[in-house]
């Protein structure tokens, strides 16, 4: 094509930026100029910015739990100093979101539950990102037999009925029984690193063939140095985007397990997911018990997805959003 003009449909041209990696020379310290471009792009994206602001508010909000904590915490029935409460109360001045099936203050539980849900999301994203980056960069950098083996492991994990295995683990693996936050994070992380590993592997494979990596190798840089100095900084963007999206997936998966009754045990601590487990049966009696945690999950996950999308656009303006 001689003219860049053939598209039968108009589509906005995206401005191009200098690829970040072209600047990362061998001995030049990694300047923040590519990142300032990314930051500028991200801050120009209003939807992502609003989403980020909402997320920050949600986190502050759930962290403010201790401020309210001395106020009818898990009190069943009447406690000294508290008003005698009934289950399934509607919202009132004392109980902003009413009370749940055993008379606990729903507002407090939303705060506490949000804390746990968000923590699980972040923790799972962090752990699975570390696993994914290690496996992916190893596989992509060394290639050959290691790569083939690791990638067939990834394929294998991807072809598993994952939720079913998670449920199995919560019931049959001794250390993961009981529905503690720790065990849920371990189980979710174990089954969530594959996409990241695959993405990182792909990126590493292309980076490995770049001139400056060759140059570094010629200059006698160690593999460790090449990976940490040249490969990892350049895949940081992709990893960050993928990690953000995996926070969203982890929050949804945790809530699904909890909804089914196998996530974080409601006896130990509330999460938005396990609050919904009991609330869905009494939705006709007290819709707010369903809607409050449900909106908590949806708004949080949507904001995380928006931020992830914003990051993706900021790092790679050519990308077209196509789901996850």
């Amino acid at each position: 094509m001689t003219e860049s003009f053939h598209d039968p449909l108009e589509h906005p041209k995206v401005p191009t930026i200098v690829p970040a990696d072209d600047h990362a020379g061998e001995e030049v310290p990694f300047t923040d100029s590519p990142f300032s471009i990314v930051r500028k792009r991200f801050f120009a994206n209003r939807a992502a910015l609003v989403a980020l602001a909402i997320l920050v508010l949600i986190v502050i909000f759930t962290m403010s739990y201790p401020l309210f904590a001395n106020y009818v915490v898990h009190s069943t029935y009447s406690e000294p100093g508290s008003i005698s409460v009934l289950p399934y109360q509607g919202p009132s001045a004392q109980h902003w979101l009413g009370t749940d099936d055993i008379s606990r203050d729903e507002f407090l539980r939303i705060l506490k539950g949000g804390q746990i849900s968000i923590f699980v999301g972040l923790a799972v994203a962090a752990v699975s990102t570390v696993i994914g980056v290690v496996i992916g960069s190893y596989s992509g950098f060394f290639g050959g037999r290691a790569d083939r083996t690791l990638m067939s492991v990834v394929d294998f994990f991807l072809s598993l009925p994952v939720i079913a295995l998670m449920l199995t683990a919560t019931k049959f693996v001794p250390i993961l029984k009981g529905g503690s936050v720790f065990s849920v994070v371990v189980i979710l992380s174990f089954f969530s690193w594959m996409i990241l590993a695959r993405v990182v592997r792909g990126e590493t494979l292309t980076l490995r063939e770049r001139e400056y990596v060759h140059a570094a190798r010629m200059a006698g840089a160690s593999t460790w140095r090449i990976i940490t100095r040249h490969v990892l900084p350049n895949i940081a963007g992709v990893v960050l985007v993928q990690a953000t999206l995996s926070v969203a997936i982890a929050i949804i998966t945790e809530s699904t397990l909890s909804f089914l009754g196998f996530g974080v045990s409601p006896a130990l601590t509330p999460t938005w997911g396990n609050m919904l487990n009991s609330a869905s049966d009494v939705i006709s009696r007290s819709p707010i018990l369903f809607w409050a945690p449900a909106l908590g999950i949806i708004v949080t996950v949507m904001c995380v997805n928006f931020v992830g999308d914003g990051l993706r656009d900021a790092f790679d303006p050519k990308s077209i959003r196509g789901g996850q």
């Binding site: 094509m1 001689t2 003219e3 003009f5 053939h6 598209d7 039968p8 449909l9 108009e10």
Partner: peptide, 21 residues
Amino acid sequence: ESGSGKSVTSLAVMSLLPLKT
């Protein structure tokens, strides 16, 4: 040369250019 508008001219004859052109 490329960019001289020759292909655009030919596509305009056929009305095959993007709608908003």
